[in-house]
Design a protein around this nucleic acid. Structure first.
Length: 948
DNA sequence: AATCCGACACCCG
DNA sequence: CGGGTGTCGGATT
């Protein structure tokens, strides 16, 4: 359940007659408890209450109070030893009249009428596994508003199928935006209080009957109201039909002011309202909209249109803390520093205010405008401090009191019409609220109508549009835009004396969509081709988000300023790094700041499973770069010379995949890829059953190792048939059946040429590589929490799957390298990761691993330390690698064996142990650079992706 | 002809 | 039911 559904469930609960026996179960059900959980609690199996209530372990202790003894009951719950021992997070007591509750972790306390419980539902959200964040806790209004609008939207679409078409969808979006504005206006004094909802209640009648009559007249009333808001109030005797008198506006509508500002121009129709839709409309109007939080509301409201929107672009809402991680280092911190430096100097303060008015914020994936709204609010806060230091509003001329920050400085690109509409509106609301806060409600109201120019949101595909046209780099444009606002709009710059010589700064920000190369749709691939094909030859492995970085770099190359996005961390890893970041450098941009990988989270019920980074780019400069390193202990900040494409504090280096090792290492093979040969892979039970069925099968079975099998020491079994034995194997019916099935799977992929080519070889995997005696196995994916990479020595005839790399029949000192801390550091730095997991690669990690030339003595030493590692493991038989390398429980002898191994290897590198991993990585980067500098003579097989 | 990566997928405590 | 940890497919070089 998400927060919206929970709010509805709690609201429904308190509307029903109070049932003392059932309330505890109804309550936890409202927060998403499963039926089985509730049944067990009801039966008493899991109910741990010792005071006659209901106690759900790790969650809540609920007490039903005798009438009038709610406080006493809560005290009993609090005093109950079981409350603590069962780790209850919440207490709640009620008699059906009043409710008292306590959040034992957060410390919040609530006492209210039973019927008001829904107003406090957010406090209990942890019960549903939703961690509360300040925004939602303080503003259940946003959740309610979203739920009600969502229902209205769906209902309107159902009743007005003709509005579901491509063209009219825009009209419906605009219609919804108008409604939101009107709700907001009637609760904030822009209209008379409740004027809009009351007018609809009185003037429209609910639908009834059939035929046309079944729709009632709600749509006609709304059309008339909106027509009035689009018609200026007349001057006496003026018969121009554009004005009210001549336009024949009905009296009930004439009471509304002229709003316009683009919001009410265009289509005049309203959709038809069924009885249900009208009810939803009025219920939405009942909410107190002045508390709306435009930054989070906008994102939540996107859910309104979500079900029916085809694309998923811009759907992922960025939390406010994460937005600030982008905006603060991008430009807000600098403004604050300048404010600090200005002290009380009037001249400096005026200059800073002038600068604020010349800053443009541009979000080329703006969705409903979160980043723009937060940026606006932060800038207004800074401006307010300037005004205070200038002596407060009272000392300023009227013209100077008004904000110097025009909404028209806020630019966006958004592919979805509804979101764009919400973004424009959210900015207007943010401005109105800022005016209320920093000027006065009265002035804010006086200035808001008619609506003036808002953010300039272009509807379209950000990878197809020319950003220089969407947000033109010309300084003159700015003044022009502001003039358009007219006398009632934002203050023209000249009035404040703010324009002269003002340099326009543009900051690009946002959270664009992510899609890895093997998840991209064909149109997304075309988008990337459009961006990258003029720039570089090979771009096919880039994530969709890389298109935004490339466009931003090109834009900044024309305008200066800066750009920062939240991004999937994959663009700073593995094969994407040597493609994307040399291009950014060639466009004369560099990384100015970055946050290293952290887990994505927001208020959504189901968070996207993704790990993200934040990267800011800027024109190349000598200024220090700022690296925010995210660790388990929190975030550390470093000012350093350079941040490279791996987000490492080191000079620019690009490790390209290589098919041959740059050092003198043994060859490491990619594992055997089945390619639609699932029926050749068996569990140990299946394999036994097969042998029982026909003992001849045994000759064709091999232990089969992927990542899991190596780490847990338990192989699966595969059917392994060499070409020479194919006929003999096919003569065994139980094998033949499996071969038929493999053939069918491959035939079913006619478009996959690799699969087609294998149709005639259904008895084997695509690859068939095996060892003579043994191999060193290196799992493809493994946890990042172990202090060393997992690897093992495994005897033939076992084989590896494509989830495991193998060095066949090679000297053991190779294992010493794989198992070294240096290799752990290198793989972690230059290979891709799955989230944070290690994702091993032979081409990116093994073949590129820089190692000084090893003498025979070195090799002998490393062979010995490798043997010691294996011996130490054996001493703990049958412990698995997972057991042995548990970061909290690694046996001392094994740890010593690794220390010794590292000691020997690191002496070969620098004659002593490295101090830490940072020093290791620096040395590895240096050595790699040296070793690949004269690659031509070494026969390196790198292919350079040429930068145009 | 071989490999990279997942706005993930799944498993087990 | 969510933190911990690696499958499997299929586009790409």
């Amino acid at each position: 359940m998400n927060a919206v559904e929970i709010e509805e469930a709690v609201s429904d609960l308190v509307l029903q007659p109070f049932d003392a026996a059932e309330f505890p179960f109804q309550f936890i059900t409202a927060f998403g408890a499963k039926k089985a959980t509730v049944d067990r609690l009801r039966k008493g199996d899991t109910n741990q209450s010792d005071v006659g209530g209901v106690l759900q372990r790790n969650n809540i202790h609920i007490g039903i109070a005798p009438a009038g003894e709610v406080a006493e009951t809560l005290a009993r719950l609090r005093a109950s030893p079981k409350t603590a021992s069962a780790k209850a997070k919440f207490l709640i007591a009620t008699d059906g009249e009043t409710v008292e509750a306590e959040d034992l972790i957060g410390g919040d306390v609530v006492a209210c009428a039973y019927a008001d419980l829904p107003r406090h539902f957010a406090m209990f959200l942890p019960l549903a596994g939703i961690s509360t964040v300040k925004e939602i806790k303080n503003n259940p209004i946003d959740v309610k508003a979203t739920g009600r609008l969502n229902k209205l939207y769906v209902e309107l679409l159902k009743d007005n199928p003709d509005w579901a078409t491509e063209d009219r969808r825009h009209e419906l979006n605009q219609f919804m935006a108008r409604l939101i504005f009107c709700f907001f206006a009637e609760d904030t004094g822009i209209f008379r209080e409740h004027q809009f909802t009351e007018t609809i209640t009185q003037m429209s009648h609910a639908a009834h009957g059939s035929g046309e009559e079944q729709w009632g007249n709600t749509h006609e009333v709304l059309t008339e109201l909106f027509r009035a808001m689009d018609t200026p109030v007349t001057h006496e005797g003026n018969l121009d039909p554009r004005y009210r008198q001549a336009a024949n506006i009905r009296p009930y509508a004439d009471a509304f002011p002229y709003v316009n500002g683009g919001l009410f121009t265009g289509a005049v129709d309203a959709p038809r309202f069924s009885r249900t839709a009208r009810a939803y409309l009025l219920r939405a109007g009942e909410l107190d909209w002045k508390e709306i939080n435009p930054d989070i509301f906008g994102s939540m409201i996107q859910a309104v249109a979500e079900d029916d929107e085809r694309g998923e672009l811009g759907m992922h809402y960025t939390s406010v803390p994460n937005i600030l991680k982008v905006l603060n280092p991008l430009f807000l911190d600098d403004l604050r520093e300048q404010l600090e430096a200005a002290g009380d100097s009037k001249q400096k303060l005026r200059n800073l205010r002038k600068r604020l008015g010349n800053i443009r914020v541009f979000d080329p994936a703006c969705g409903s405008g979160n980043f723009l709204v937060i940026a606006y609010k932060q800038m207004r806060a800074i401006e307010a401090e300037i005004v205070t230091r200038l002596g407060g509003e009272a000392s300023l001329k009227l013209a100077e009191r008004r904000s110097a920050i025009p909404l028209s400085n806020f630019y966006g690109i958004e592919i979805k019409g509804f979101a764009a509409e919400v973004a424009r509106l959210a900015l207007l609301i943010a401005e109105f609220q800022a005016d209320c806060l920093y000027l006065s409600q009265q002035e804010a109201r006086a200035m808001v109508l008619p609506l003036h120019k808002t953010g300039q949101i272009t509807i379209g595909n950000a990878l197809r549009l020319d950003w220089l046209e969407v947000c033109p780099p010309v300084g003159a444009t700015l003044a022009e835009e502001v003039d358009l606002a007219g006398p009632t709009g934002r203050l023209a710059l000249e009035d404040n004396g703010l324009d002269e010589g003002g340099r326009v700064e543009t900051y690009i920000c946002g959270n664009p969509p992510y899609a890895g190369y093997n998840k991209q749709s064909s149109s997304q691939k075309e988008d990337l081709a459009h961006v990258f094909s003029p720039l570089i030859k090979r771009w096919g492995n880039l994530d969709y988000v890389a298109g935004w970085f490339a466009n931003a770099a090109r834009y900044l190359d024309h305008t200066g300023g800066g750009a920062a996005f939240v991004s999937t961390n994959t663009i700073s890893q593995g094969g994407q790094v040597p493609v994307l970041w040399p291009l950014i450098l060639s466009l004369r941009q560099q990384i100015g700041f970055a946050h290293t990988s952290f887990k994505w989270s927001n208020l959504a019920a189901h968070n996207a499973g993704i790990t993200v980074i934040i990267v800011g780019i800027r024109p190349v400069s000598a200024a220090p770069a700022i690296l925010f390193e995210e660790g388990p202990e929190g975030t550390t900040v470093r000012r350093i010379d350079n941040i490279n494409g791996y987000l490492a504090p080191a000079r620019d280096i690009f490790v390209k995949p290589s098919s041959v090792a740059v050092s003198n290492l043994a060859k490491m093979n990619f594992g055997n890829h089945p390619y639609y040969a699932a029926d050749l892979i068996l569990s140990q039970q299946e394999a036994r059953a097969l042998v029982i069925e026909d003992s001849r099968v045994a000759a064709f079975l091999r232990p089969y190792y992927g990542s899991t099998e190596v780490i847990y020491g338990t192989p699966r079994i595969c059917i392994w048939v060499n070409d020479a034995d194919a006929e003999q194997a096919a003569a065994i019916p139980t094998l033949q059946r499996r071969f038929d099935s493999v053939r069918a799977d491959r035939v079913a992929k006619p478009d996959d040429s690799s699969a087609s080519a294998l149709v005639s070889f259904p008895y084997r995997f695509r690859d068939q590589v095996e060892s003579k005696q043994y191999f060193i196995a290196v799992p493809q994916t493994s946890s990042e929490n172990r202090p060393y990479l997992p690897c093992d020595l495994i005897a033939a005839p076992a084989v590896v799957s494509f989830k495991c790399f193998a060095i066949h029949d090679a000297p053991l000192w190779n294992l010493a390298l794989v198992a070294s801390r240096l290799h752990w550091v290198w793989i972690g730095a230059v290979c891709a990761r799955l989230e944070m997991r290690f994702s091993y690669s032979n081409t990116l990690g093994w073949n590129t691993f820089p190692v000084p030339k090893l003498t025979e003595q070195d090799k002998a030493d490393l062979t010995r330390t490798a043997e010691n590692i294996l011996l130490a493991r054996e001493a703990h038989f049958p412990a698995t690698i997972a057991d042995l390398y548990d970061p909290d429980a690694m046996p001392d002898d094994l740890r010593r064996a690794h220390e010794e191994n590292d000691e020997v290897l690191e002496r070969i590198f620098i004659g002593r142990r490295f101090r830490n991993d940072t020093e290791r990585l620096e040395r590895l980067f240096d050595l790699y650079t040296k070793m690949t500098a004269n690659a031509g003579t070494k026969g390196m097989a790198t292919k350079k992706s040429k930068v145009a």
